[in-house]
Design a protein around this nucleic acid. Structure first.
Lengths: 200, 200
DNA sequence: TAGGCAATCTTTACAGCGTCAAGTTAGACC
DNA sequence: GGTCTAACTTGACGCTGTAAAGATTGCCTA
């Protein structure tokens, strides 16, 4: 078959292009708006071309989630470095706010990172599991530090406390991105209340 | 067209039959396993017959979620009545455990009740909204009571405290049903830790 | 008891989905 | 130049939600 258009047969960097297009589709149409066919159309390749770079749709979603973890970690980390060593309670509150803000600005990515689409319905890539574990370790470290500074109770070990407090934060976040609490201002107050409840 | 089979043209109580079949399908195959076509097949009607009882799939899911709220409320309420008036901390812990147990036993229903499928992707029925608000009011009442008994802090008003604490509980529950923490025993410990964090 | 209406149910069809199988193209290496 | 392989296309299958239009029935009224 002759190739009338000037588009080359091989794309060159299809994997990257797919990831970028997928992020953009998810951003404006949500996860439901992302289909392998629509994605392929947008990039300008055949409908099954993406399958040479991602085993299936689940693998593509895992890759997006992975990028999400990196983004979130970088953002939160950078924010923490700005604070002096003596403002620990501030530091904790700031982390909570940054966490919620990230989810608010990237709700669909957050859903992929911590939602059932990948973790229950599909199955997380080995690579994704590593990244997510590393991300959680950041939280455990922070909690450990907060315990030593007396911001959080030492009644339970750092790991358990980290699990429990992160679960709380995650719950609050989910309410926002799942549309149960739509009001962001309202949610900020609840977050404030939550931190007061948890910290001592 | 002659009706060779003895099945009558009108089902009689199709709405109820659909709800029961849908619950059963969800129970054994998850929400993803529930399609309008499969549902209709199972009940033995044509594929579009269900649309005469539910506007669309969203309406069907809302009806299932509604039944879920009633089930959960009844279960928790019954459990609370068994306790004497002086065991308030016990009462609180028991509620938390019952809440998590319900979600563990009915993960797909829980997801419908509090998940994005209905609240963000679709839109909750007016009827569902009422039932869910009533259910949340039960929680606010409990929190109010716990504040008066000194189990929970009075630093913030009952509503805010109820929102924050329920968000925590919800977060923990989601981790379980979304497959992030698979170990139920592990989760019980975290729940214990959470209650210790929140109560004073 | 007959007529008509509204509720219920069926048939048919459409556009979309994920992905498998088989064929085509092009670049890379011996 | 020949061969191997990765990248890509074409075509197909079975699944999805649901709109449109026709068939059947129970019920209510005259």
């Amino acid at each position: 078959m002759t190739r009338s258009d000037n588009k080359p047969y091989h794309h060159g960097d299809l994997r990257t292009a797919l990831l970028e297009a997928a992020s953009s589709i998810i951003c404006e149409s949500g996860i439901d708006g992302l289909s392998m066919r629509r994605l392929a159309d947008q990039v300008g390749v055949s409908r099954t071309a993406p399958y040479h770079h991602f085993k299936d749709k689940n693998a593509l979603l895992c890759a997006i989630a992975e990028k999400g973890f990196e983004h979130q970690d970088a953002m939160v980390q950078e924010l923490m470095d700005k604070l002096g060593p003596d403002q620990n309670r501030q530091r904790f509150k700031r982390w909570v706010r940054a966490y919620i803000r990230f989810a608010h600005e990237n709700p669909e990515t957050y859903d992929l990172m911590y939602g059932r689409e990948i973790w229950k319905r599909g199955e997380p890539t080995e690579s994704l599991q590593q990244v997510s574990r590393a991300s959680f370790r950041l939280w455990v470290d922070l909690v450990d530090h907060m315990q030593q500074q007396g911001v959080l109770s030492c009644q339970h070990p750092a790991l358990k406390t980290a699990q429990a407090s992160w679960a709380s934060l995650h719950g609050l976040t989910r309410l926002l991105i799942d549309g149960v609490y739509l009001d962001r201002t309202d949610l900020e107050e609840i977050a404030e209340t939550l931190v007061d409840l948890i910290t001592q």
